[in-house]
Amino acid sequence: MADPTWRQPDMQQNAPSSEPIVSLRNVQKSFGPLRVLDGVSFAVERGEVLALIGRSGSGKSTALRCIDRFEKVDAGEIVVCGHRVDRPDVNLRALRQDVGIVFQSYNLFPHLTIEQNITLAPCAVKGLSGSQAKDLAQKVLAQVGLEEKLHAYPEQLSGGQQQRAAIARSLAMQPKVMLFDEVTSALDPELTGEVLKVIEQLAADGMTMVMVTHEMGFAKGIADRIVFMHRGKVHETGAASILTSPTTPELTQFVGTGNLKS
C-alpha cells in the first residue's frame, strides 16, 4: 500500500529541511532467491518517530539496516540526510555521522570502559579533545541516567544499563536520525522499561527516530507513524491509531494475536 504522505525526495545532496530526513522509494532486496524487500517505500520527516512493525521475516529489520547501509539494496532509492544511500559511491563515514544505530545485542566494546566506549568515535572521527569528549560522555550518560557508570566495563552492567550506554554512545555523535533495531528484544521484561523510558525522552526532545519493535504498546504510545510490513512490502501505514483500528486483515490478525498490550 502506498504511503499517502509520500513526497518526491529532493535529488540534491543538500536537501532543505522541509524534505524527509529518511526516504525509501521502491526498495528491492533479495538474499539469494528470497525476496526480503519487495518495493518498500516510506519517508520519515524531521522530528518524527516511525515504528516498523511486522512478523519475523517480514523485512522490517532489513529495511532498517538498509537505511544505514549495513545491507546494500538491489534496486530503488534511499535518501538519508541528503546522502544517496543506494548509490555505490555514497560516503559511508559521512552517512554514519548523521545516522546513529542501536542494536538488539548492545554491542558495546567489551575492552573499553563506558566512558571510553562513548568518547572513542567523537575523538577519532570528529577530532574532539580528551576533555571535550569527557564532558560529552558525562552529558550523554546523564541523558540515559547512567552518570555513575562512567568508569565501569560493559560486563559489569545489567542488560538494560548496557543498552542505555549503547544509546548514549550513539547520542555522543549527535546524529540527525537514530535507528533502533529491536533494542529491547534481548532484555528481560523487567529491564525493558528503563530503556523505553530513555527512548521516550529522546522522542520528547524531538529526535527523529526509526525503530523496529515488538513492543506494540510502546509503539502505539510513542510513534507518530506506524509502518506495518508483511512479506517484504509495506502492507499498511498510518498514525498509531491503525493499531487499534486496522484496515487490512493481516494487521488485524497481527495486533490481535496478543501483540497489543499497553
Partner: peptide, 13 residues
Amino acid sequence: KPQWEAAEGLALS
C-alpha cells in the same frame, strides 16, 4: 561480527 558493525555504525574508518 556485531562488534565490527557497531564500529562501522560509529563512522570509524
